[in-house]
């Protein structure tokens, strides 16, 4: 759908939509530089809350724990989600396909309390029956996060796979590559951007999860959202504002670098195409 003119109503919807989405975040960030403990009354500029944030050992160890789990969950989710996407898009009809597709997409909408509770009960049952997992902690959180993140990865990768021109693979096979060779030299390099996008999505989802982690974690494995939640429950604290500011800056910087890079590549590409035709 393209149209040269985007009407006045559309502009209003767009502008007010972005105001609604961003103003609360900007206010939050603004008050992280407040001298006062009260986040609603401005008492002068200060960065002391950032200092306090970094001195908060519980918070820092939770950050580390969350990053570690997010990294491992995202990596595992990319492996499993990609396999699932390949099975969904490439294998045509097979027995149990409907159930397979259902299992992949259901975690996208499943309320977190249900997923969390059910996984906890599974781990308890398993440890009773098999003695594993002996205790809940980062491993059980990793399993839980991998499970719901792989659904997102599968959706992202399968949409890329569906656009994939199959004749590229046939051409590679025709030129002498084996099935495995085709996968690693043709398919994987071409879908790599989707795998990266899936990994990043899974990473942020894992980093953000409170409810599921609360169910399946054990003593000694407190993730960042759990620390933030218990602190927020007690009331507003500028330290959380400081944390939020850092998080928002990190995410938007990463996003804008990625966006800028892709835009630049696109511009270079267009220039090259033009010069190819001008010759």
């Amino acid at each position: 759908m393209t149209n040269a003119g985007i009407g006045r109503w559309s502009w209003m919807a767009l502008v007010s939509g972005f105001i609604f989405l961003y103003v609360p975040i900007f206010i939050l960030m603004f008050y992280s530089f407040n001298e006062s403990r009260l986040v609603t009354v401005w008492a002068g500029f200060s960065i002391k809350w950032y200092g306090e944030l970094f001195r908060d050992e519980q918070m820092m160890s939770a950050v580390w724990m969350s990053l570690k789990i997010a990294f491992l969950s995202a990596s595992m989710a990319v492996v499993l989600g990609t396999m699932a996407a390949i099975a969904m898009v490439r294998f045509g009809r097979f027995r149990g396909k409907t159930m397979f597709t259902g299992m992949i997409t259901a975690p996208l909408v499943m309320p977190e309390v249900i997923t969390g509770l059910s996984l906890l009960l599974l781990f308890v049952t398993l440890s009773q029956a098999l003695g594993w997992p002996a205790e809940r902690g980062s491993v059980t959180i990793w399993i839980a996060h991998t499970t719901f993140c792989m659904a997102y990865v599968a959706v992202v990768v399968s949409s890329r796979l569906r656009e994939f021109d199959r004749s590229l693979e046939e051409a590679a096979m025709d030129l002498g590559a084996s099935r495995l060779g085709v996968f690693f030299r043709i398919t994987l390099p071409i879908v790599a951007p989707a795998l990266l996008a899936g990994w990043l999505l899974a990473f942020t989802l894992s980093l953000d999860d409170l409810v599921i982690a609360s169910f399946v974690s054990g003593p000694g494995s407190t993730t960042l959202p759990m620390v933030v939640f218990s602190s927020v429950r007690l009331g507003v604290s500028p330290k959380i504002n400081a944390l939020a500011t850092l998080l928002v800056l990190a995410v938007s910087m990463a996003t804008f670098i990625a966006w800028w890079y892709m835009r630049r590549q696109e511009l270079i590409r267009q220039k090259e195409i033009q010069s190819a035709f001008n010759k």
């Binding site: 004749s167 590229l168 046939e170 051409a171 025709d174 030129l175 002498g176 590559a177 084996s178």
Partner: peptide, 15 residues
């Protein structure tokens, strides 16, 4: 990949 036959694809299928 085992056949001494090559094909030129309609879409060209250039990598």
């Amino acid at each position: 990949h085992e056949r001494p036959i090559n094909m030129m694809f309609q879409s060209y299928a250039l990598f």
